[in-house]
Design a protein around this nucleic acid. Sequence first.
RNA 1: GCGGCCAUAGUUCAACGGUAGAACUUCGCGUUGUGGUCGCGACAAUGAGGGUUCGAUUCCCUCUGGUCGCCCCA
Length: 410
Amino acid sequence: MSKYQAPRGTFDVLPEAARSRAKVEAAAEGIFARAGYERIATPAFEDTELFERGVGKSTDIVRKEMFTFEDKGGRSLTLRPEGTAPICRAYVEHGMHKLAQPVKLFYSGPFFRHERPQAGRYRQFHQIGAEAIGSDSPLADAEAISLLSNLLAGLGVPGVELRLGSLGSLEARRSYLEELKAHLHANEPELSEDVRERIDINPLRAFDSDDEGTRGVMAAAPTIVERLEGEDAGHFEEVRALLDAAGVSYVIDPTLVRGLDYYTRTIFSFVCEGLGAQSEVGGGGRYDGLIEQLGGPATPAIGWAAGIERILLALGDEAGESRRDAFVAVADESQRRRAMALAGEMRASGKTVEIDLAGRTLKGQLKHADRIGARRVVILETDETAQLRDMATGEQREVSPDSVLTEIND
RNA sequence: GCGGCCAUAGUUCAACGGUAGAACUUCGCGUUGUGGUCGCGACAAUGAGGGUUCGAUUCCCUCUGGUCGCCCCA
């Protein structure tokens, strides 16, 4: 055990894992590009207050999971625990409401939450996310959800289920929660202890309880979806119809819980079986009040984030082979300089090429070439002769050093 | 933040309280210029700190980290 280790809840991404990660990111970038989403990057840390106001002071994230520190000027800063509030900050700060609406943005990068690590949960984790800011149309909801659905399907993430719900407007949500709390308080004696303790903190959680008494109480409890009315109900209806039309399957989950305060109306969660306790691979929702909350004009928006580590976990270990088109070996030390020059030319023509950097014997060079997965090896013998060896078949023939470049391109 | 389980070479695993072993990997050798297979050799470990004991990888405590669950979320 070495003296220094990656800090608790963090990890190194070694080359093999980096290849799998790159695939996920490339798939996402393709999907975003084709849907007209553009990349945005925001700082790794922000004013602490941004998250307190944006995510909500009563949320677990703000109450106990933020990496907060003071800089030398006495400012309170926090490593970003999520991506939506910073992007809304940027939207307001740069007057992006003057651009053609909605502004469609995506991001990919590290986020930080001080939690107890476990499978699929880290203190520094990575999310890919999308935000469509400036449209209140159900079409924006359906498009955003479709993108994530397509991403997970395209990557082949198995056993994914989309859960869909709606919280209504902020007012509707508030009055519903009061009604639910009243119902729970009225039936307190039948509730399990942990549910009872959380009535005022997170009453929606009671719907997930497997306690028999609690289940009885919840069977008679009102659901928010039932309480939707007017435009909220119409919006939800339309989102559902659009998803149906797009062939995106989902289940309505009236008990869907989101731990961030800014969500309104549509919320959704993609869960994946067999991921253990952290089964959500991606999720999000509409946040029609956040921009205004942060000092901008009243602006509706919707977005989501997906956890890269959870996606990779769900995909399992698919060891991507690392390959090289060729390896340039030397049979004689006098050929080293020519090997270097030849490798340079081959790289310039688009090939993946390596040379020996360790002063190995020819035998050692062949062995190394095999290990790194080189398809072919060029062996420079003299200024006039060279061999071209196919590593898979073992076939080898003499070629002129000047023709190697064309030979290798066949 | 709370509870359970765990910690030995780079990796995966052994070792009754009594000499820490193996496999894979890496490097080298099997003659003079040719990889994979095979044979031989070398490097390499008890997470940290205390305690009990003649003696601790083994038992106890603290810390660090991992893992599973709770909570929460991506």
